[in-house]
Nucleic acid binder design. Structure first.
Length: 426
RNA sequence: GGCCUCAUCGUCUAGCCUGGCCUAGGACGUUAGGUUCUCAGCCUAAAGACUCGGGUUCAAAUCCCGAUGGGGCUACCA
């Protein structure tokens, strides 16, 4: 049975890089019908915070990464580490220095392992210093606790970032000294920040929840993340999670670091919104609007559904729906000054809008088809192109030059609102 | 500095293992055009890469060596 783990340290939120590491572990487990376990590396009591843990777990859940079994907390296992360390001490493989227990690294040995992504990696122990196992304060060091926990948790495959390659020989020495079976290793490339360096809080290490706040869909984010360092082949890019699980293979993971591309994520998110069932995107946008305090419980869902239908293929994030909502449901709308200047301040603007208003006011019905017919006829009468009526009208009723088709917008807005907004410019 | 590691369009990648089908394919982005009331979407097209130098071979993006460049590690951080 394959068992993998994701081992976050609750000293910060889950960012893109760590989420991708978690994802590849999760995909490997699900693809192979194995177990995906969580280990919380909270040995640093000062920097570890409960709220970070909550955010990390919440982020994992949001991205569909459910875990098996209860998470293991390192802070609750100090006795365990101590026992192993004392065992090494007894065997004469470690020594005390003050209160600390230190592992003796034998010289002139070659440690080698077969990485599932990189192939064979070899290091001479002459490059390694003796390793602190237990610090003077009684807490274990990372490399020691990591080995003990991976053994205790019966981890079969350690999938982690490239930055751990140089930790691996140290850990292997520990497995050997303890007489324990060495797991398989797969070191995946790191996600780089735009300037090519390591992802850090200063450079692009945005919290996963920040993407949620910005209106990204978890499906799109997971899909995009899976493509950082891995490709399903056949030039496929947008594919559902179950398909990703089916196709995922750790052997296909690249060796080269990848730079996160926000533009492509946005594009992909837009594709997901466009292709999503209307009911689904309606409810998600609704939840998003509620979360942002834009709407409350008494809100016209049926009408919102019609609006979403008109806009879903042009939206890139759920955040776009905030502006859309305001156009249709708020009385006061924001006007794009440049657009007003361009379309509503011409010498004949007032006249045009006034005639539009009159036509709309007297129209026997107010639906997309009838409005369009009336507009085209009016344009004919005035010897103008329809566009010369359409553009100013759009700006007058929505404040913007962009958006859904004008006649859709007018029908969705309703006659009263349309007339009221036109009046402002007549 | 030492050690480890990586190297295909601006970005994500396919191809590399098992040399020839690669005048290097796809996607994002960019540019141009089409559809249209705008934008978006959709469609079409264009520009755009094998880091460099040796070697092996009839033949190298693919194999080998070196250089260069990037990244990581080098903590009683994780």
């Amino acid at each position: 049975m394959i068992r993998v783990r994701f081992a976050p340290s609750p000293t910060g939120y889950l960012h893109i890089g760590s989420a991708r590491t978690a994802l590849f572990n999760w995909l490997y487990a699900r693809h192979n019908k194995g177990k995906f376990l969580l280990r919380i590396e909270d040995t640093d009591r000062l920097r570890s915070k409960e709220e970070y843990l909550d955010e990390i777990l919440g982020s994992l859940k949001w991205l569909f990464m459910n875990w098996d079994e209860d998470p293991t907390f390192q802070s609750r296992r100090f006795d365990l580490y101590k026992r192993y360390a004392e065992d090494l001490l007894k065997k004469g493989l470690a020594y005390m220095e003050g209160e600390a227990i230190i592992f003796k690294v034998e010289k002139d040995l070659t440690v080698s392992f077969d990485d599932m992504i990189h192939g064979k990696i070899e290091v001479s122990t002459n490059e390694l210093k003796d390793q602190v196992l237990m610090k003077s304060d009684g807490t274990p060091t990372y490399n020691f606790a990591c080995v003990i926990d991976d053994v205790e948790m019966k981890i079969t495959h350690i999938i982690r970032g490239d930055d751990h390659i140089s930790n691996t020989p140290k850990q292997i020495l520990l497995y050997r000294a303890l007489g324990l079976a060495i797991p398989n290793f797969a070191h995946m490339p790191l996600i780089l920040s735009k300037d090519g360096g390591r992802l850090s809080k200063r450079h692009g290490a945005t919290s996963i929840f920040e993407y949620k706040r910005e209106g990204f869909l978890p499906e799109a984010l997971v899909n995009y993340l899976s493509l950082m360092g891995w490709a399903p082949g056949e030039d496929r890019e947008i594919l559902p999670l179950d398909e990703i699980i089916k196709l995922f293979d750790i052997k296909d993971v690249n060796k080269t670091g990848a730079t996160f591309d926000m533009d492509k994520l946005s594009w992909m998110n837009g594709q997901y919104i466009k292709d999503m069932d209307l009911a689904d995107i309606v409810s998600r946008s609704e939840i998003f609007l509620k979360g942002n305090g834009i709407i409350d419980d008494k809100f016209d869902e049926a009408r919102w559904s019609d609006i979403v239908k008109a806009y879903k293929e042009r939206a890139r994030t759920l955040e776009d729906f905030i502006g859309i909502y305001k156009i249709f449901f708020h009385d006061a709308i924001e006007y794009d000054e440049a657009a007003v200047e361009k379309y509503l301040k011409k010498s004949n603007s007032k006249d045009i809008l006034n005639r539009c208003r009159v036509v709309l006011k007297s129209a026997s019905s107010f639906n997309k088809a009838s409005i369009e017919e009336a507009y085209r006829k009016l344009a004919d009468d005035m010897k103008l192109k329809a566009a010369e009526l359409i553009h100013p009208t759009r700006v007058a009723i929505s404040g913007k030059t962009v958006g859904a088709g004008l006649f859709d917008m007018m029908e969705l807005l309703g006659r009263d609102k349309v007339l009221k907004r036109l009046e402002r410019f007549c």
